[in-house]
Amino acid sequence: MRILEVKNLKKHFFPGGGEVLKAVDGVSFHIDKGETLGLVGESGCGKTTTGRTILNLHEITEGRVIFDGIDVGASRRGVRRELKKRMQIIFQDPYASLNPRMTVGDIIAEGIDIHRMYRGIKRQERVRELLDLVGLNREHAGRFPHEFSGGQRQRIGIARALAIEPEFIVCDEPISALDVSIQAQIVNLLIKLQKELGLTYLFIAHDLSMVRHISDRVGVMYLGRLVEVAESEELYEKPNHPYTQVLLGSIPVPDPKTAREHENIEITGEIPSSLCPPSGCPFRTRCRYAMEICSVQNPPLKEVTKGHYSACHLNDKK
């Protein structure tokens, strides 16, 4: 059952002087209930903006976001407010995403307070429950964020998102700022919560190995466009789009023998600016297979094999 549908989503920024920053430029995908869709890409690809636009933290420039049949962009304020209880977000930076002047208990209960879900003793109980759920000590509700480590703060952020009982959570690079051993803790927690509470995730990250582990399907973005979507094993074993191939080839493998023998696919050049993306296919300036048609026409996302979509003119030949 599709809980989220994104149709040709565009988010453009206007920094002034007539310039347009096309952060998200026509992205379409869907997520089924209980599923995790991973979204990967490098800086400037628009994955974070996509996640935030879905939650209406940025206004949609064009396109539609449909959550459980409700068109988010076209809804009235009241409906959107109710939707906030069902769609939540976890942030990347555990140091910046918690108000340093609020106690942990108040931070976690903020959603509860805003939507007036519990008061008094019940509120306290709920906060304690949430602390337990994320593996923190119940007694710490009165402490302040700076007294906790990065991993613990991230858990506080997760508890805050869970407080209002959402069905869908955008995980915006939740582990990028954490140490490797703590990353595993958080990923395990997210998986456990998904199983227990039936959550659906949009997992945005640039750590490809973690994404592979937690996601059912993965989408790859480049310069505001979705260039490939497939089931995660399929994507990692048989990447179709040249950019995906380069991306996967760049992952440093923690194995000296493989690292020595395997010559990583070298990619030249820098990521172009989103202010003036290349015409046609955005990746053509760095693609070793670039053809004439690539500078003229932006290849659409087409199904290559069942469930595996890729946006590349190379597939047209087949």
């Binding site: 939650l55 933290l57 918690l98 002047r101 609020m102 959603g111 805003i114």
Partner: peptide
């Protein structure tokens, strides 16, 4: 611009709450 303000907005906080609880206190 701080992320905790974005978080509050995502939770559904209105302007009054944001100004008093988050902006002014900091």
């Amino acid at each position: 611009e701080q992320e905790y303000v974005t978080a509050a907005i995502a939770l559904g906080a209105g302007p009054w709450r944001i100004i008093t609880r988050h902006l002014l206190t900091n």
